[in-house]
Nucleic acid binder design. Sequence first.
DNA 1: GCCTTAAGTTTACACTGCGTAAAGCAATCT
DNA 2: AGATTGCTTTACGCAGTGTAAACTTAAGGC
Lengths: 202, 202
Amino acid sequence: MSSGDAYGDPETRRRILEATRELISKHGSDLRLGDVADRAGVSRQTIYLHFGDRTHLLVALVRHMDESLDLGESLAHVRAADNSSEAIARTMELHSSFSAAIDSVALVLESAQYEDEALSTAWRDRMRFRLGVHRDLVQRMADCGDLADTWTVDAAADLFYAVTLPGPWRELTRELGWSDEQYIEGMSGFLQRALLSDTDEG
Amino acid sequence: MSSGDAYGDPETRRRILEATRELISKHGSDLRLGDVADRAGVSRQTIYLHFGDRTHLLVALVRHMDESLDLGESLAHVRAADNSSEAIARTMELHSSFSAAIDSVALVLESAQYEDEALSTAWRDRMRFRLGVHRDLVQRMADCGDLADTWTVDAAADLFYAVTLPGPWRELTRELGWSDEQYIEGMSGFLQRALLSDTDEG
DNA sequence: GCCTTAAGTTTACACTGCGTAAAGCAATCT
DNA sequence: AGATTGCTTTACGCAGTGTAAACTTAAGGC
């Protein structure tokens, strides 16, 4: 009912998802399905026909955004870095642009996940993937001998991941007035000092 | 109507706030005022008499928790540390116990702040205070010459603050299975390496 | 003892947003 | 022509918030 078998015209579906994304970025979690319908140029019931309920609309939105953002290319660029310091810097560049793009949706999903089973799994899926990316990165650092002795790969990966969550990004850039550059520079330096061995920090 | 002039019996007020806290830790942001009333042994209308509406109940809860937690003592213990490394470690101990105590409420407030003016100011007030505590701490490090040259006091304070927000704590301890000790140890080491000058990391 | 005020209860109701149900309409397939 | 698909329209049930008004109970003033 929810995942594979899409009801109706894919174009209509897409328009609804786009409308949802736009309204979330304006009104956060208190978006009304009626407004989404209006914005998509569709009746409210159509949303129910396509997605079943509010929750599954948001779940679909997560997938939709992942698909439309096409992470693969950016990740390849990170992996192409020829030293650990540069890899961290490129990761933070990616985080910066990515966070800005998904923040309003992330905010809603983050907070809804603890009240909603389906949303929770969708969001945690995403986060697991994110964690995996960081783990690979840290593993590479370790393989090069760049990871400081203090850290196991797992511990460093978890910290790298946790510290670059949307929350801290939001606080620094949205509340404390850091520019994108400041965030990238600051966090990169922070992580390089914390994770890499003292010999080659950059 | 909301802040200074408290309506009714302070004891009743306290019971309502306690009930709110307990129910939030169970049901998160979808607590129902009816349930709060039941739990507090009071009619639903009494809540409205005391707090006006749902929002101002939550605002009052923020103040209530701050008062009941009595931060002062713990902060004194942090300041009594005789080197920067130890100060960071003690800060993380404080964060650990504190985060666990307020997490469920923090989660609700964090997410609601972007939809609700009154809640937003209440929560940001709290966060400003938190930031100030970290800034003082970093200032002390700088005064001792322990802060790494890379950092200005402001940048280091912002990062210290942002990285120790409830979000990362929640992710590490709740989702990635870190124990309290692991969080304290891991984050302390992380911050010490990142912020302190290379000569004396501990 | 009587009056007043404060604190809280009870009942009732309006409003909003979610979700469901059913009938109808237009286009397309066969 | 008949059936299916995609969507609309109208209608309704339900839960939770917030408001209003009338009633109860207890404490204080004098």
